[in-house]
C-alpha cells in the first residue's frame, strides 16, 4: 500500500513538473490597456470569452462568483478594495451607504435593510452566508444572541 502511494505521488509530481516546464502562456495584463469607466460592456471590445464578463448584464452578479476564479483578470481593473467593499471582513457601513452616488451599481442592502433583512432571510438565507456566514457578522449579535 505504501509503495503504491509513493508511486502515485512520484507519478503526479513528475507529471506536474513536465506540465510546469512546458507551460508558456503570457500572463494577463496587470493593468487594463484601455481606461474603463462605469459599468463596462466587455463585448464592445472582446470577441472572445472575456466578453462574457459584461458588467451590464443583469445576471452578472449571480455569475461573478465563477468568474472570480480568474481573479488575476479582475485585478486588471479592480483594486482589492473593490472586492472588500462588499466581501468585507469586519465592516460597519453597508456598501450602498458608501456609494449612494452610484445608484446604478448592484450593491447589496439598499434602502431600509433592517426591515428587509427579515424578508430576505426568510426567502433566501443562503444568500447571506457567503458574506456573513463566517465573517462580517459581528453586527448580527446585537439582536441574534
Amino acid at each position: 500500500m505504501k509503495n503504491s502511494n509513493l508511486t502515485l505521488i512520484l507519478a503526479l509530481g513528475l507529471m506536474m513538473s513536465i506540465l510546469y516546464a512546458c507551460a508558456n502562456t503570457t500572463s494577463v495584463a496587470r493593468v487594463h490597456p484601455e481606461a474603463v469607466t462605469g459599468l463596462p460592456d466587455c463585448t464592445e471590445c472582446h470577441t472572445d470569452s472575456w466578453g462574457a464578463l459584461n458588467h451590464k448584464a443583469p445576471d452578472f452578479m449571480s455569475k461573478h462568483k465563477i468568474y472570480a476564479s480568474s481573479k488575476f483578470a479582475c485585478a486588471s481593473c479592480h483594486q482589492e478594495s473593490f472586492c472588500v467593499d462588499c466581501h468585507a471582513h469586519k465592516e460597519e457601513i453597508k456598501p450602498s451607504d458608501k456609494f449612494k452616488d452610484s445608484p446604478e451599481r448592484s450593491l447589496p442592502h439598499r434602502g431600509d435593510y433592517l426591515s428587509q433583512h427579515k424578508i430576505d432571510g426568510m426567502v433566501d438565507p443562503a444568500s447571506c452566508v457567503k458574506c456573513h456566514g463566517r465573517q462580517n457578522n459581528e453586527g448580527c449579535k446585537t439582536c441574534h444572541r
Partner: peptide, 11 residues
C-alpha cells in the same frame, strides 16, 4: 449541509 458551522447565531 449548507449552513453547517456558520459562526453567527442568525444563520
Amino acid at each position: 449541509d449548507y449552513f453547517f458551522r456558520v459562526t453567527t447565531s442568525a444563520l
